[in-house]
Design a protein around this nucleic acid. Structure first.
Lengths: 172, 172
DNA sequence: CCTATCATGTAATCCGTTACATGATTAT
DNA sequence: ATAATCATGTAACGGATTACATGATAGG
């Protein structure tokens, strides 16, 4: 078993490891492609990040890096033994860091923005997101993907509810 | 009117500006104190960030920096004309960048974690957060604070619902 | 053939986190 | 007095975003 002295991996690292676990040997571009139909809907990663993170993980021995001989000389990454192990350990640990809401719209609301004005924009945005999620739901996706999608749908429904109610407060 | 060539301000910048707008001249420590009873519940900022951000904003002329003569020689910041203007422009623009869900628990769920195990932990966490929010609701807070709090309560309720339902799927 | 767009990266910058450090107050 | 904790920072580091750049492929 290999002992790495490097800093703990980030969520981005695990996203890359997890995608490789699912897809098998891939180029960073392929990872990006795969993530665009699913993961990126609730956790986007710029393509440069994927390139850099892949290189980083290879450097600490969690990925193996092969390069095409001719043509584009693309780099193809695959999980090593320790890479797969690191991923599985993370995946099978049910405890997670709590996430903060950190919604810029709420920040404005808290700092004195006009609720009605904000709400108009927010309702539109969240309704649109909700619609796109519902559309995705109709397509054929993995069980895990569907579960995550359900979470997103619930969240957006709640957002729409919150901002709508804020814009038209019922008398109490 | 002053023309600043610096990069656009971050949300953290506006949080500092907004707190100063509400509190008047303050030390970074006072800003932190004020934020702890409200803002930090959905948008935490490490104290070092507040010190650094204040210094940054002073450097570009959005804050004025005074320093105590004796004793601790604390730095006291206050909004300049252009500082207040920058804040108001931001606050009164109802459009905001949509925020991503980016929930580490959802990332695990998507990448193949066991739903039941995850759900147990998540329900507990979110229920606890929800309870603390409900307790805060009973206290006397500002209207803006209350609105933001309502959002948080709605979010946590939805999370509890989602993970609970995931752990005990009803037959369909 | 030419030019869009796809594919594939490199580099600079900067925010945010973490680690560290130390002077003032307060409690015992 | 002395310990504990509050208050107030500095500095290192690294991930993430942004800007830039260029080789392949396909469409016209």
């Amino acid at each position: 078993m290999v002992w790495t002295m490097s800093r703990p991996l980030t969520d981005t690292s695990y996203a890359v490891l997890g995608l490789l676990d699912r897809l098998g040997p891939s180029t960073p571009y392929q990872l990006k492609q795969a993530a665009q139909s699913g993961l990126f809907y609730f956790w986007s990663i710029p393509h440069t990040q994927i390139y850099m993170e892949s290189a980083r993980l290879a450097k600490v021995g969690l990925l193996e890096e092969d390069q095409e001989a001719g043509g584009r000389r693309r780099r193809i990454y695959s999980l090593t033994e320790s890479g797969r192990e690191a991923f599985v350990v993370w995946r099978d640990d049910p405890s997670t860091k709590p996430r903060e809401i950190r919604d810029p719209a709420l920040l404005k609301l808290f700092l004195g923005s006009d609720p009605i004005g904000l709400a108009g924009d927010q309702v539109r945005r969240h309704q649109q997101l909700l619609d796109s999620y519902l559309q995705l739901e109709a397509e054929d996706i993995s069980a895990a993907g569907r579960r995550a999608l359900e979470a997103g749908i619930g969240q957006e429904r709640e957002y729409v509810r919150f901002w709508t109610q804020l814009a038209q407060p019922i008398e109490e």
